[in-house]
Amino acid sequence: MPAFDIASIGFDARGLVPAIAQSREGEVLMLAWMNAESLAETLATGQVTYWSRSRAALWRKGETSGHVQRLVELRIDCDRDCLLLIVDQAGPACHTNRRSCFYTAVQAGEEVVLSEPIA
Score class of each variant (00 low, 15 high):
N35D: 05
I118K: 09
A36F: 09
S115R: 10
A36V: 01
V113S: 03
C78I: 09
E110D: 10
F102R: 03
R55K: 06
E111G: 02
C94R: 04
A108G: 13
T49V: 01
A119G: 10
G109F: 06
P2D: 08
A21K: 01
C101F: 05
Q69F: 11
L16F: 06
N97G: 00
E111A: 03
R98A: 06
K61V: 02
G66I: 06
V28Q: 09
L84M: 14
Y50I: 09
F102Q: 10
D77M: 03
N97A: 04
G26L: 09
G46W: 12
E110C: 00
L74C: 08
A90V: 15
S8G: 08
D81L: 08
I76G: 05
R80M: 14
N97F: 11
E73Q: 15
R98E: 02
C82F: 02
I76Y: 07
Q22I: 13
F4K: 14
R75S: 04
L83T: 02
V68Q: 14
L74A: 07
V28H: 11
E73F: 11
T49H: 09
D77R: 07
A19K: 03
D79G: 09
H67A: 12
M30T: 13
L43Y: 00
A3Y: 04
F11N: 08
S38Y: 10
L84Y: 07
R75M: 11
E73D: 15
H67D: 14
L83I: 08
C94H: 07
T42Q: 05
F4M: 14
L31C: 12
T64V: 10
M30C: 10
E116Y: 04
E27N: 02
L83M: 01
Q89G: 05
M34N: 03
R80I: 10
E41V: 08
W33N: 07
E111T: 11
